[in-house]
Simulated assay, not measured.
Amino acid sequence: MIDIPLTAELVRGALELERTEGGLVPHRLPARARAQNTDPRLAMAEAQPAGVRLRFRTSARVIELDTLATKVEYPGAPPRPDGVYDLLVDGKLAAQATAPAGVRFADLPGHDKDIEIWLPHNELTTLVALRTDAPVSPSPRADRVWLHHGSSISQGSNAISPSTTWTAVAALAAGVELVNLGFSGNALLDPFTARALRDTPADLISVKLGINVVNADLMRLRAFGPAVHGFLDTIRDGHPDTPLLVVSPLYCPIHERTPGPGDFDHEALASGFVRFRATGEPGPGKLTLEVIREELARIVAQREDPNLSYLDGLALYGEEDFADLPLPDALHPSPAAHHRIGARFASLVLDFNRA
C-alpha cells in the first residue's frame, strides 16, 4: 500500500482544511467566519463535511481511509447511526461503508478511473491517512461550480448517505462541482456566511432561505426584508454577474401558517422517535412559510437584477409531494423525497446554466 498525502488537491467541497494533531479537518466556513460565530450548533454543522469528498484518479484496486469521527447525541433522542461513506467510481455509487476508525474498499476495477469518497454529511470527520495500492493523481474539476447555502435540509437531514442528499443528487445529475454551505439550523442570514459566499469562486449560486428564520423565531417581517437585501448585496460584492437563485421554503405543514419557535415533540421523544412541532402564535409581523415565500418573491422582483432569479420551494416539494412522501419528523424530507427534490433541482440547474 502507498501512503497518499492528504492535500487540498484531493479534497473537494471544503472552504478550508485545518491541520490538527489528529489529522485534517475539512471546514465549510473559513476561519474568519468561525471566529465571528458564537453558536455552538453552527460550529458543529460547518465542521460536518456535507458535500465534502475526496476525489482522485487511480487504477488502485484497494483504497483505505483512516478517519476520526465525532458523533452528536441529543438528550432523550435515540442515538444516531454511524456515518456512511459513499464510494463513487466514474460517477456511479459502487460501495458504502461505516467504520469507527475509517473505511476500506477492495476488489475495485483495475482500470484507470475517477474515485470519489463522499464523507458523512452528519458527523464531524477528521481525515487521518489515505492509502492505495496504486499511485493517484487529482481528477479534473467540473466545468461549473455550484455554490449553495441552506438549512439542515440542504445539509442532508434524513438522507441515508452523503451522496443521496438532495444537493448531492442534483450536483451529480447536473455534472457540476458542488460546494454545499447548508448548515443545520443556521440558514439565518448571518453576514459572515454571506461573506463566505462572496469570497468563494462559483458559476452558479443558490440560497435557500426561510425555514430556519421561522423555526428559530429569529426576526419579524420588518427586519427580514432588509436582512435578505443585505445578504444578497454582500454576495453581489464578489459576484456582480454570477447567476444567483433565491429559493423559498419547501412545503412544511407545521410552519405554513404557524410561526416559530419550533421544538421537539416531547411525547414523540418519550416514545423513542424524533418529531418536531411549531409552538408560536400568529401575530403582527410574525413570520410563517407563507409570509416568507411572498416576501422573497417581492424582494427578487424589486431588485431588478437580470442575473437574479426566484424559485418557489413548492415547485421542489409541495403539498402533493407531502401527501405522497410525508416528512417523517414533520420537518425534514425522507430519503425518497431527497431524491425527488434533487432530481427536480437538477433540471433547473441545467436550464439555469444554459441561460
Rank of each mutant, 00 (worst) to 15 (best):
E123T: 06
F56T: 10
A69I: 12
L172S: 12
T67K: 06
L287R: 00
Q155L: 09
T126N: 04
D265P: 11
L181C: 08
S151K: 12
T200H: 08
F56A: 12
T200G: 11
T7M: 08
T70H: 05
V179R: 05
D112A: 09
V291Q: 03
G185C: 14
E16R: 11
T20F: 00
L188M: 05
L119C: 06
E319C: 07
H229Y: 06
A95L: 00
P259W: 01
P40M: 10
L87T: 11
W146S: 04
V89G: 06
D203E: 10
A346N: 08
N353I: 14
D107Q: 14
W166K: 02
E116F: 03
H149P: 03
F352V: 07
W146F: 11
T70G: 04
R28H: 04
R293H: 05
M219W: 13
V213W: 03
G283V: 11
L188K: 13
G280Q: 03
E16S: 11
T234K: 05
L15Y: 02
I299K: 13
K92A: 15
Q155M: 09
A60I: 11
L93G: 06
A336K: 07
Y251A: 08
D86Q: 03
A346P: 06
P40K: 11
L93P: 06
D263E: 13
L197R: 01
T70F: 06
A202T: 11
G272I: 15
L289K: 12
L316G: 04
S139P: 08
G175I: 00
G318M: 08
